[in-house]
Design a protein around this nucleic acid. Structure first.
Length: 655
DNA sequence: CAGAGAACTTAGGATTTCACAT
DNA sequence: ATGTGAAATCCTAAGTTCTCTG
């Protein structure tokens, strides 16, 4: 049962926890009049994040900021300039027309698209040319020495069925292949690929022996690893050639990198979590399945000889170059541009500007939803509670999903009774809500959080988003995640960064990043090698400590020497030894910081928030402020993605 | 004007590459 | 040179939001 009507959950729950007097208390019962800022956000796991920057401080600050802006106007204020009125900007530049087929060969050193006007008519591009996708390599039948057995007897499979069998064989030592659903789905789809003869013989998966196939592929991958340098180089060169040929497109006079220019190869579907479709055959995509999107006046990509595209389209209202319909869910897959591209970058920039707009009105919204808790209309109350959790806990919206089509996961608006427990009192706190559910990618969300009211209800995302849109232009549920993530990073950096050495600062940054990852529940499986790598690090640390104490002893004896001899040489020796101690101390410190960082990061994934939720300008400003090379924070790919931010943010950037 | 389908962002794990120690 | 572990990159699934259509 879904929690969409207030009564259900609470009533049951109340019985369980036999409270009586709160019972009638149907609407918000504020624990505090003031929002409890100390733990306004409530991260899953234990990390606590203080908010120094609460409302009381916030308002004056805002005013000050306003003044700052005025003062700086004219000097430099690029960074505060927002993208916003996309609609109001006019193309005054008289842009060079599109049709220029031959855009410059080289992506003329670092194009600063963020300094250009943006289209105002909803079109995504004016000119688009590309070479189409790279098709998956055709199936190569197994050498005849590799046999398949059915019910103990060798059996030669026709290529169609054989190919699908190899998909299974390649996964033999994965636990997937032991799962019922996986086997059932696989077998069903496999049989569809069989000749009628094969179909009549092969009726039981348990009687299939794929071992020789499995061994063969293992041997192959061993062989690949053992290839000579030369052969490896050849492959590398070939990949590079493919990248050069297919990995770029020309969009509006600029050569841009394509994200995924290869068609997904066929294989067995591996969903995440308990996916009802695991094991199904993801079929091979043929040119006849593929829709190409490009400019009418561009050089159109050619389908492989003897084939045709499904369709050639010229739609500049969309950003994709290639699409096809995938065979598992029937959803559409796309080939699109790299994050470093203008088209992605602009959108990303805009996302953060929307989040900054939210910052301006978040107080109002928070007050409003607190008010709405008291509404006599159930829907309003539901909406307000949903929004409260989305804001406070950075939950995802939680759209409807069709049952049985995918793993059973939920978000804020699709939570069901079984996902929460309500405690009128727990550990000395009133109104504690315990969340325990599987979210996106079947990652568990577990959190216990004291709330300001008795909670009961949830809501539909479409209605919620409609409401949000009325509150602020461009506001949707996910903007809260972006906003809370970014503002948290900014606050945490302010709070944690100390004037210490570089490694300590980096640790502070990672800790701030970690606070966000915890808020957003970005988890990872601890690396398989985690324990070992911690041990290795510890060994290094111990070794370093030994070296250090040796070095210190050396200093002592050198000093003693100096006392006796009192000559220049001894003096020098003392200095040298002291230097050595310092060096070792620094190395030791680095190692220890590294160990701390790694330990704290055991099950936390920083990448997702860094890439998708944190306004990069905050990080850039922080680097500038503390004299930290940006390379310490962003690797090459990340620097490409965030080139706009790196170029425009100054050290005083305020999210 | 709701619901379905299309478009686009976000996500963790697998695979590959790289840097460094031996 | 080679092996090893960490970092980078790839892969594509799984979300959210937007848009179109009956």
């Amino acid at each position: 049962e879904r929690i969409k009507h207030e009564d259900v959950s609470t009533d049951r729950h109340k019985d369980k926890h036999k409270e009586k007097d709160h019972r009638k208390e149907e609407v918000p019962h504020r624990v505090k009049t003031e929002p409890d800022n100390d733990h306004f956000y409530h991260s899953p796991k234990s990390l606590k994040r203080q908010r120094d920057n609460d409302e009381t401080e916030f308002k004056p600050k805002k005013i000050k900021l306003e003044n700052d802006r005025v003062d700086k106007k004219g000097k430099k204020r690029k960074q505060d300039e927002d993208i916003k009125p996309k609609k109001t900007q006019k193309n005054k530049k008289g842009e060079v027309a599109d049709g220029k087929k031959k855009a410059k060969k080289e992506p003329e050193e670092k194009w600063k698209w963020w300094e250009e006007e943006r289209a105002t008519d909803g079109s995504k591009w004016r000119f688009l040319e590309h070479k189409g996708p790279v098709m998956a390599a055709p199936y190569e039948p197994l050498p005849s020495k590799v046999r398949f057995f059915y019910d103990g007897k060798q059996m030669k499979l026709a290529p169609q069925a054989e190919e699908v069998a190899t998909f299974f064989a390649k996964m033999l030592d994965h636990e997937y292949t032991t799962k019922d659903a996986f086997r059932k789905n696989f077998f069903k789809d496999w049989r569809k690929e069989m000749t009628s003869e094969e179909k009549s013989k092969i009726t039981d998966l348990k009687k299939c022996n794929f071992n020789e196939m499995g061994e063969y592929f293992k041997a192959q991958s061993e062989a690949r690893k053992a290839m000579t340098k030369d052969d490896k180089l050849k492959i590398k060169v070939e990949n590079e050639r493919l990248l050069q040929e297919y990995g770029f497109c020309i969009m509006d006079n600029h050569k841009e990198r394509i994200a995924n220019f290869r068609i997904e190869p066929p294989g067995l579907f591996r969903g995440r979590g308990d996916h009802p479709k695991m094991g199904m055959l993801k079929r091979r995509i043929r040119p006849e399945d593929i829709i190409i999107n490009c400019s009418k006046d561009s050089k159109h990509p050619k389908p492989p000889p003897g084939t045709k595209w499904k369709e050639l389209r010229h739609d500049n209202k969309v950003t994709w170059l290639v699409s096809w319909t995938e065979s598992i869910q029937g959803s559409i897959k796309y080939i699109m541009l790299n994050p470093s591209s203008r088209i992605k970058g602009e959108k990303d920039w805009q996302k953060y500007e929307t989040a900054r707009n939210l910052k301006k009105c978040v107080d109002r919204l928070r007050n409003q939803y607190r008010e709405d808790w008291k509404s006599k209309e159930m829907r309003i109350r539901q909406r307000a509670v949903a929004l409260y959790f989305i804001d406070k806990l950075a939950l995802r919206a939680g759209n409807e999903k069709e049952e049985g089509e995918s793993a059973d996961t939920v978000g804020c608006c699709s939570l069901r009774v079984e996902h929460i427990n309500l405690y009128p009192e727990k550990d000395g706190q009133e109104f504690v809500v315990e969340f325990d559910f599987l979210g996106k990618d079947s990652i568990r969300y577990y959190n216990k959080v004291p709330v300001e009211k008795r909670v009961r209800t949830f809501f539909y995302t479409s209605i919620l988003n409609k409401h949000l849109q009325e509150l602020m232009d461009g506001l949707t549920a996910k903007v809260f995640r972006t906003y809370n993530a970014s503002i948290t990073l900014q606050q945490q950096l302010k709070e944690l960064t100390t004037d210490e050495n570089l490694p300590a600062k980096i640790l502070s940054y990672n800790r701030a990043n970690r606070a966000v990852a915890i808020l957003c529940n970005h988890q990872r499986a601890p690396p398989k090698t985690f324990e070992k790598s911690m041990q290795n690090l510890q060994t290094k640390i111990d070794a370093k400590k030994d070296q250090l104490s040796d070095a210190k002893r050396d200093v002592k004896s050198a000093k003693a020497d100096l006392k006796v001899r009192r000559d220049e040489k001894s003096k020098k020796a003392v200095e040298t030894k002291k230097k050595a101690v310092e060096r070792l101390e620094e190395q030791l410190m680095k190692l220890e910081v590294q160990a701390t960082d790694r330990e704290e990061n055991k099950q936390i994934a920083l990448g997702t928030s860094k890439l998708n939720y944190l306004d990069p300008r905050i990080s850039v400003a922080w680097c500038k402020k503390w004299g930290i090379p940006i390379e310490k924070i962003y690797n090459k790919t990340q620097r490409e993605k965030f080139a706009w931010a790196i170029d425009m943010a100054e050290d005083d950037y305020e999210f």
